[in-house]
Design a protein around this nucleic acid. Sequence first.
DNA 1: AGAGTTACCGACAAAAATGTCAATAGAGCC
DNA 2: GGCTCTATTGACATTTTTGTCGGTAACTCT
Lengths: 203, 203
Amino acid sequence: MSIEPARRVRRSPEAARENILQSAERLLLERGPQGLKLVEVAQGAGVSHATVLHHFGSIDGVQTALAEAMIRQLVARVLEAERPDDPEAQLEGVGQVLFDAFESAGGARLAAWLELTGETRRLTLVREAVAEVISGPMAQKGVDPERATNLILVAVSLAMGVGLIGRSLAELVGRPPETTREAALAFLKTGLAAAIKTEGRAG
Amino acid sequence: MSIEPARRVRRSPEAARENILQSAERLLLERGPQGLKLVEVAQGAGVSHATVLHHFGSIDGVQTALAEAMIRQLVARVLEAERPDDPEAQLEGVGQVLFDAFESAGGARLAAWLELTGETRRLTLVREAVAEVISGPMAQKGVDPERATNLILVAVSLAMGVGLIGRSLAELVGRPPETTREAALAFLKTGLAAAIKTEGRAG
DNA sequence: AGAGTTACCGACAAAAATGTCAATAGAGCC
DNA sequence: GGCTCTATTGACATTTTTGTCGGTAACTCT
């Protein structure tokens, strides 16, 4: 019985990177920032750690690439809120999608990680997304840009907070985990409606 | 010229721990979770890394102690919102203090760190604080506990989000950094007022 | 089939981070 | 002064993590 080397899987560079990044993302989300070790990432991706290095150069390379990829995802998801169906449903929808974006796939955790790591530079993507929303659906409703911006800032912050600690918080006070999200959603909805109606008289 | 050993500073155990924790906190806040290394903590505290081990046993010990200390601070600050002066000012005050608590001294960053690290267990402190607020100032205003809880969940989440990414967000869209906070505060205030007035008819 | 390209890996090397230990030096007490 | 207690430390040891390198194997093209 000779020990024969394990059969290799050979991927395209893109597929390889993608595969590795997925493993990294999983690790980041379930083990936290400190859990992002070279060997673990490699293991999770089913490759040797040398391979990871081959594709990303260094562990920092992995971090950077991961951050960029996750931001891209997040922004994409948020922008889905932009479907201008009917104005009423949309008011509801904006909140829904926004909250989803930050809650699912660890959007909030990503954002938190970026903040904590100080990786807040490459966020041009985000700025563009915000600009798009302001000049798009918001403008349609006749909300002036200044106020629209404020609303967005608040909504995103709220989504961030809910996505990050919403579930823990709720459980902490003995409520089902979705409680925070639902409460926040209702709060946001009435708040938005009020703000849009009030439009015209200055704050 | 003989090299004489540097003069030692000898502290009480409590002072020593305190000193080390301050260094750790500083590091956590400005370098992020990954920056919490034994030697760096020691250096920042002006002691050898062996000393850190002596007092905390391990690097995990440092983390745990730090988390606990910071939570204690955070809760203490939040509870300052509880001064029941006059009802009106308090409505304003709650928001102010809450936001301060999460913004200053990296309260939000701490919470984010805890979430990311999965250190969400030892939060009995937080639960007690929340309970206190619910049965205290909220009850005084005649807000029923269920709804009060929801409001708190939302407010805290919002404070969390604002504290963590508020400034970056605002700058990202070309506004002064305090914009998010102010907008959120206003939003929260009107929302709270509305919610309290509506009290009585079910949602 | 043969040749070229390169993703992939194992083994090794280097660096970084954590932890151990015996000895030293402040501080209080007699 | 001499004694005790222990916070402190440098030097060493171990473990973890990151990075290098030469060769191998999968795939494509001719």
